[in-house]
Computed example of a mutant assay.
Amino acid sequence: MDTWKMCIVLSRRIVTTADQIPEELTLRHRRFRNWSMNPKSADALLETLLALSIHSLVVDAAVHGNPDAAAVIQQMPLADIATAATVRPHHELLAGLPPLTEPDQLRVNALKVLIHDDASALPLGRLSQTARITMQQLAAAIGGGAPVCSDIPTDPQWLRP
């Protein structure tokens, strides 16, 4: 599996797993509606922003001598993904992207519009903060101090009794 696919699969797993936390999905969608954002579209952009954040960290690791993307992703702290989504310069999120499938390219293009259009700074900031909140909620639910991606449960019902 190529690096981008690993990043998009992980970002979907992050959102799907976080959605099992009581009230997380409801609160996130309420925030999106309050911000006049369509929850389904905003969730797709959130997943893409998380994938770009993960990808940028993998690219950094490769530049610093660790080309094993799968191993880097497995040991990536959730806090690092949250930081990349909120603090990393946007051009770094877009650097080093491979050719993308049409659906992925459309979502990346939508984020590019938010990045490059000054009038879109507020929606982009809100997406970034939602990414941070999602990662923090997931890390808190997983527990254990500083969870990494390999700690994300694969069972879709992990929190349900």
Rank of each mutant, 00 (worst) to 15 (best):
21 I>G: 12
156 P>D: 03
91 H>R: 13
64 H>Q: 13
45 L>W: 01
113 V>W: 00
26 T>Y: 15
18 A>H: 02
159 L>V: 11
3 T>G: 12
4 W>G: 14
94 L>K: 09
119 A>E: 05
154 T>K: 01
51 A>I: 04
111 L>N: 08
141 A>R: 10
91 H>C: 09
38 N>S: 09
101 T>F: 04
47 E>F: 09
152 I>D: 09
4 W>I: 08
86 T>Q: 01
108 V>G: 08
46 L>Q: 12
133 I>D: 15
102 E>N: 03
90 H>V: 11
14 I>R: 01
73 I>A: 04
100 L>Q: 07
6 M>T: 04
76 M>A: 02
18 A>P: 00
160 R>C: 15
121 A>G: 08
27 L>H: 06
81 I>T: 04
80 D>N: 13
41 S>L: 13
106 L>Y: 02
91 H>G: 02
11 S>P: 04
69 A>R: 00
78 L>H: 06
98 P>R: 12
139 A>R: 06
22 P>F: 06
127 L>K: 06
41 S>E: 13
147 P>N: 12
101 T>Q: 02
104 D>V: 11
65 G>Q: 07
68 D>E: 11
39 P>C: 00
149 C>E: 04
93 L>N: 12
50 L>Q: 10
56 S>C: 08
30 R>D: 14
10 L>S: 07
84 A>F: 02
80 D>S: 11
147 P>F: 04
17 T>E: 07
122 L>S: 10
161 P>S: 05
22 P>Q: 11
22 P>E: 14
120 S>N: 14
66 N>L: 03
63 V>F: 01
137 Q>N: 15
128 S>Y: 06
9 V>R: 15
153 P>H: 10
113 V>H: 08
79 A>C: 10
136 Q>P: 00
104 D>W: 00
131 A>S: 12
88 R>M: 11
69 A>C: 00
65 G>N: 05
108 V>M: 04
134 T>C: 05
56 S>I: 03
91 H>Y: 02
143 G>I: 08
148 V>M: 12
78 L>P: 07
129 Q>N: 11
141 A>Y: 08
67 P>E: 12
